[in-house]
């Protein structure tokens, strides 16, 4: 991690992203925020919680709140496939973002990022920190703070 951080500092305006795929769309999470990548197993449902909360699970002795990113992004659930999860930390608590697959780590220059297109779905725009143009595809930057922060302020709809 420290090496990565050094890289990050050294490269100045370029940022490393862990790429993930959710519903066919490529997303990028700043690598400094990603703690683990794991396979979510034996997730315990939490009744009455917000619909995006997939449940809680035990990750090496810590209780992690798993968030179903497909539901968060209003995508249909993934059928019959192994899901992956990215472990992040927010306000000293552990969360797991349940996604489809994890891709490679990309180092991108921050000046190749563009703001969200104005016609982007409002629900996506609220958690997207911008878009990177890659060869043949676009990568949406996931803004973790906004992604999770919004879930605290939003009135929790009982499931």
């Amino acid at each position: 991690m420290s090496v990565l951080e050094d890289n990050f500092k050294a490269s100045g305006d370029s940022i490393q992203y862990v790429t993930v795929v959710i519903g066919g769309q490529l997303f990028g999470l700043p690598i400094s925020q990603v703690h683990d990548v794991f396979v979510p197993e034996s997730v315990t449902r939490v009744p009455l919680s917000a619909p995006e909360v997939a449940g809680v699970l035990n990750l090496r002795g810590r209780i992690v709140t798993a968030i179903d990113m497909r539901r968060r992004l209003h995508l249909p659930p993934l059928k019959e496939a192994q899901m992956m999860a990215v472990g992040i930390e927010y306000k000293h608590e552990s969360y797991g973002l349940v996604i489809d697959t994890v891709g490679e780590v990309l180092t991108l220059s921050s000046n190749s990022a563009e703001p969200n297109p104005s016609n982007l779905d409002k629900r996506w725009a609220e958690i997207s920190g911008g878009v990177h143009r890659l060869d043949g595809k676009l990568m949406v930057i996931l803004d973790v703070d906004r992604l999770l922060g919004a879930m605290f302020t939003e009135p929790m709809a009982a499931a």
Partner: peptide, 26 residues
């Protein structure tokens, strides 16, 4: 163990924990 602050609004649960078999229970 205290619940994540995202779930703390659920009055029906006082916390969660890891059972002997490793699974989480509310």
């Amino acid at each position: 163990k205290p619940m994540s602050s995202m779930l703390r609004n659920l009055t029906m649960f006082s916390g969660n924990t890891i059972l002997g078999d490793g699974s989480v229970i509310m």
